[in-house]
Simulated scan of single mutants.
Amino acid sequence: METKIGISAENLQAVTQILAKILADEFVLYTKTRNAHWNVEGKDFYSVHKFFEDQYEALDEIIDDVAERIRSLGHYAPATLKNYLQLTHLTEQAREKNDSEGFIRELLQDHQSIIIYLRENINRFANDYHDLGTSDFITGLMESHEKMAWMLRSHLK
Protein backbone atom coordinates (compact mmCIF):
# COMPACT_ATOMS: atom_id res chain seq x y z
CA MET A 1 0.00 0.00 0.00
CA GLU A 2 1.27 3.46 -0.87
CA THR A 3 2.46 5.70 1.95
CA LYS A 4 0.41 8.91 1.89
CA ILE A 5 1.90 11.27 4.45
CA GLY A 6 2.24 14.50 2.46
CA ILE A 7 5.66 13.69 0.99
CA SER A 8 5.98 12.69 -2.65
CA ALA A 9 7.01 9.14 -3.52
CA GLU A 10 10.18 10.48 -5.11
CA ASN A 11 11.12 12.38 -1.96
CA LEU A 12 10.36 9.39 0.24
CA GLN A 13 12.64 7.29 -1.96
CA ALA A 14 15.45 9.84 -1.69
CA VAL A 15 15.06 10.17 2.08
CA THR A 16 15.06 6.42 2.67
CA GLN A 17 18.15 5.97 0.51
CA ILE A 18 20.02 8.39 2.76
CA LEU A 19 18.56 6.75 5.86
CA ALA A 20 19.78 3.38 4.55
CA LYS A 21 23.32 4.79 4.47
CA ILE A 22 22.88 6.08 8.01
CA LEU A 23 21.62 2.66 9.09
CA ALA A 24 24.66 1.01 7.54
CA ASP A 25 27.00 3.45 9.29
CA GLU A 26 25.26 2.82 12.61
CA PHE A 27 25.51 -0.94 12.20
CA VAL A 28 29.20 -0.84 11.28
CA LEU A 29 29.92 1.48 14.22
CA TYR A 30 27.95 -0.84 16.52
CA THR A 31 30.07 -3.79 15.33
CA LYS A 32 33.30 -1.86 15.80
CA THR A 33 32.21 -0.85 19.31
CA ARG A 34 31.37 -4.49 20.12
CA ASN A 35 34.83 -5.43 18.87
CA ALA A 36 36.39 -2.86 21.21
CA HIS A 37 34.28 -4.18 24.11
CA TRP A 38 35.31 -7.77 23.47
CA ASN A 39 38.97 -7.25 22.64
CA VAL A 40 40.27 -4.27 24.62
CA GLU A 41 43.27 -5.00 26.83
CA GLY A 42 45.28 -3.03 29.36
CA LYS A 43 45.32 -1.69 32.89
CA ASP A 44 42.05 0.14 32.29
CA PHE A 45 40.35 -2.99 30.89
CA TYR A 46 37.37 -3.18 33.22
CA SER A 47 36.34 0.47 33.03
CA VAL A 48 36.63 0.75 29.25
CA HIS A 49 35.06 -2.70 28.76
CA LYS A 50 31.97 -1.39 30.60
CA PHE A 51 32.17 1.97 28.81
CA PHE A 52 32.14 0.29 25.39
CA GLU A 53 29.18 -1.81 26.53
CA ASP A 54 27.20 1.34 27.34
CA GLN A 55 28.05 2.73 23.92
CA TYR A 56 27.10 -0.35 21.90
CA GLU A 57 23.82 -0.65 23.82
CA ALA A 58 22.99 2.95 22.85
CA LEU A 59 23.94 2.21 19.23
CA ASP A 60 21.68 -0.86 19.24
CA GLU A 61 18.72 1.38 20.07
CA ILE A 62 19.74 3.86 17.37
CA ILE A 63 19.93 1.07 14.78
CA ASP A 64 16.40 -0.03 15.62
CA ASP A 65 15.11 3.56 15.49
CA VAL A 66 16.66 4.22 12.07
CA ALA A 67 15.29 0.97 10.63
CA GLU A 68 11.84 1.75 12.01
CA ARG A 69 12.01 5.26 10.56
CA ILE A 70 12.69 3.76 7.13
CA ARG A 71 9.73 1.39 7.58
CA SER A 72 7.45 4.21 8.75
CA LEU A 73 8.21 5.98 5.47
CA GLY A 74 6.98 2.95 3.52
CA HIS A 75 10.29 1.37 2.53
CA TYR A 76 12.24 -1.69 3.62
CA ALA A 77 15.35 -1.32 5.73
CA PRO A 78 18.52 -2.97 4.44
CA ALA A 79 19.35 -5.84 6.75
CA THR A 80 22.32 -7.77 5.40
CA LEU A 81 25.99 -7.37 6.10
CA LYS A 82 26.62 -7.19 2.36
CA ASN A 83 24.22 -4.24 2.05
CA TYR A 84 25.74 -2.48 5.04
CA LEU A 85 29.26 -2.81 3.68
CA GLN A 86 28.13 -1.44 0.30
CA LEU A 87 26.28 1.50 1.87
CA THR A 88 28.59 2.59 4.70
CA HIS A 89 31.28 5.21 4.43
CA LEU A 90 33.06 3.85 7.51
CA THR A 91 36.01 1.50 7.23
CA GLU A 92 37.22 -1.46 9.20
CA GLN A 93 40.75 -1.29 10.51
CA ALA A 94 43.12 -4.09 11.43
CA ARG A 95 44.72 -3.52 14.81
CA GLU A 96 48.20 -4.34 15.97
CA LYS A 97 47.34 -3.54 19.59
CA ASN A 98 44.02 -3.79 21.37
CA ASP A 99 44.62 -0.84 23.66
CA SER A 100 41.83 1.43 24.81
CA GLU A 101 43.35 4.59 23.34
CA GLY A 102 43.51 3.07 19.85
CA PHE A 103 39.93 1.85 19.99
CA ILE A 104 38.72 5.17 21.41
CA ARG A 105 40.46 7.21 18.70
CA GLU A 106 39.01 5.03 15.95
CA LEU A 107 35.49 5.09 17.37
CA LEU A 108 35.68 8.85 17.95
CA GLN A 109 36.66 9.37 14.31
CA ASP A 110 33.65 7.31 13.20
CA HIS A 111 31.22 9.19 15.46
CA GLN A 112 32.54 12.50 14.13
CA SER A 113 32.15 11.27 10.57
CA ILE A 114 28.54 10.29 11.24
CA ILE A 115 27.87 13.65 12.93
CA ILE A 116 29.09 15.48 9.83
CA TYR A 117 26.95 13.32 7.53
CA LEU A 118 23.87 13.84 9.69
CA ARG A 119 24.48 17.59 9.91
CA GLU A 120 24.81 17.78 6.10
CA ASN A 121 21.38 16.18 5.69
CA ILE A 122 19.27 17.96 8.33
CA ASN A 123 18.35 20.92 6.12
CA ARG A 124 18.34 18.76 3.00
CA PHE A 125 15.55 16.61 4.45
CA ALA A 126 13.55 19.66 5.53
CA ASN A 127 14.10 21.94 2.55
CA ASP A 128 14.71 19.67 -0.45
CA TYR A 129 12.50 16.70 0.48
CA HIS A 130 9.90 18.48 2.65
CA ASP A 131 10.35 15.90 5.42
CA LEU A 132 10.54 17.80 8.69
CA GLY A 133 9.98 14.60 10.66
CA THR A 134 13.12 12.94 9.36
CA SER A 135 15.01 16.21 9.70
CA ASP A 136 14.05 16.32 13.36
CA PHE A 137 14.80 12.62 13.75
CA ILE A 138 18.36 12.90 12.48
CA THR A 139 18.91 16.05 14.55
CA GLY A 140 18.26 13.83 17.57
CA LEU A 141 20.64 11.20 16.21
CA MET A 142 23.29 13.86 15.73
CA GLU A 143 22.88 14.99 19.33
CA SER A 144 23.25 11.40 20.54
CA HIS A 145 26.44 10.97 18.54
CA GLU A 146 27.76 14.31 19.78
CA LYS A 147 27.33 13.11 23.37
CA MET A 148 28.94 9.75 22.63
CA ALA A 149 31.84 11.51 20.88
CA TRP A 150 32.28 13.81 23.88
CA MET A 151 32.47 10.77 26.16
CA LEU A 152 35.11 9.19 23.92
CA ARG A 153 37.03 12.44 23.57
CA SER A 154 37.08 12.87 27.35
CA HIS A 155 39.00 9.59 27.70
CA LEU A 156 41.81 11.05 25.61
CA LYS A 157 42.49 14.11 27.80
Rank of each mutant, 00 (worst) to 15 (best):
Y117A: 12
L90G: 00
Y84E: 00
L132P: 04
L12E: 04
V40Q: 07
S100G: 01
S8T: 09
A24W: 02
E2P: 09
S47D: 14
I18L: 13
N39T: 13
K97M: 08
A67D: 08
Y30I: 08
H130L: 15
G102Y: 00
F27A: 15
F27S: 15
R69K: 10
Q17S: 13
E41P: 12
I138F: 06
L132Y: 13
V40H: 06
I22Y: 12
K82E: 14
E120M: 06
F125I: 00
A149S: 05
Y129W: 10
L107N: 01
S154P: 02
T16E: 01
R71Q: 08
Q93V: 10
D128E: 14
V66I: 14
K50Y: 15
G42W: 08
W38L: 11
I22V: 15
Q86W: 10
R105D: 02
I138D: 04
D25F: 10
E146P: 04
H75I: 05
L85G: 06
E120Y: 06
K21L: 06
S8V: 02
N127E: 14
A24K: 03
Q109H: 08
Q93G: 03
L87C: 02
E106T: 03
I62A: 11
Y129L: 08
N127V: 15
G74C: 04
S8E: 03
E53Y: 07
S113M: 07
I63E: 05
F52H: 05
A20L: 02
T91I: 07
A24S: 06
T33F: 10
I62W: 05
V15M: 02
E120Q: 11
I114D: 00
L141V: 06
N98W: 05
I115G: 00
V28A: 08
I7N: 00
I22R: 08
H145A: 05
M142H: 11
L81T: 13
D128Q: 13
Q13D: 15
E101M: 04
I22N: 10
D99Q: 03
M151V: 04
I70N: 01
S100W: 00
S113Y: 06
G6V: 01
H155V: 05
K21T: 10
S135K: 07
T3K: 12
Q112W: 00
Y117Q: 10
K43L: 15
I122T: 07
A126F: 03
H155I: 04
I22H: 14
L141C: 08
H89T: 15
Q112Y: 04
W150V: 05
K82G: 10
N121G: 03
M1K: 14
E106I: 02
R95K: 10
